[in-house]
Amino acid sequence: MISITETIAVPSPPKRVWEVLSSPSDVVSCIGGAELGAAHDDGSFDGTLVVKFGALRVRFAARVTLELTESELEGRLSARGRDGQGATRFSGNATFRVAEGEGPSDSRVTVDGEIQLTGKLASLIESGAGVVVSRMTKEFSAELVQRCAEPAELDTPPTAAPPPTGLLSRLRAWWARLRNVRQEPVGGAAEEGGRS
């Protein structure tokens, strides 16, 4: 299991940060390799995410749910899915909360969550998985800061059906926040050259 506990300092007011974090397409744009798919009646989305583990590119597909509690500026993202080979399943969830930061125009975003990977990939990537997640979280944090600094976009006509890019972004966001990852030792990391 990979756990994520991350605090991101964002130099934008909480309202703006919430705006970004509660918009799937905005969140997706902060995550390299994420795409949103179809939205379902129950409010969940499909999404895909390509993650690079070393030189291997692995494509995940997931069903993502995002529950927002606007009054608290709190959201809960959960996702479960599998990779393209069907050899690895994952499930994860993350709770994020936007709070006031140091100053009135600063925010603090806290993220708490965990990811469970089961299947072939888990043993293929050993400790590297945690590092990858942590790197993605860093990238996401940086993108989020930038995104929030931009003025809110007015140009998306409300009727324009978003291309299959919304849902996954949430998933991405969730992934991206996997930070300060503590990785449990992978059983059977045998002691040969690479792994065994």
Partner: peptide, 8 residues
Amino acid sequence: RLQYGEDV
């Protein structure tokens, strides 16, 4: 690759 997820 394995321990640090590096793309090398």
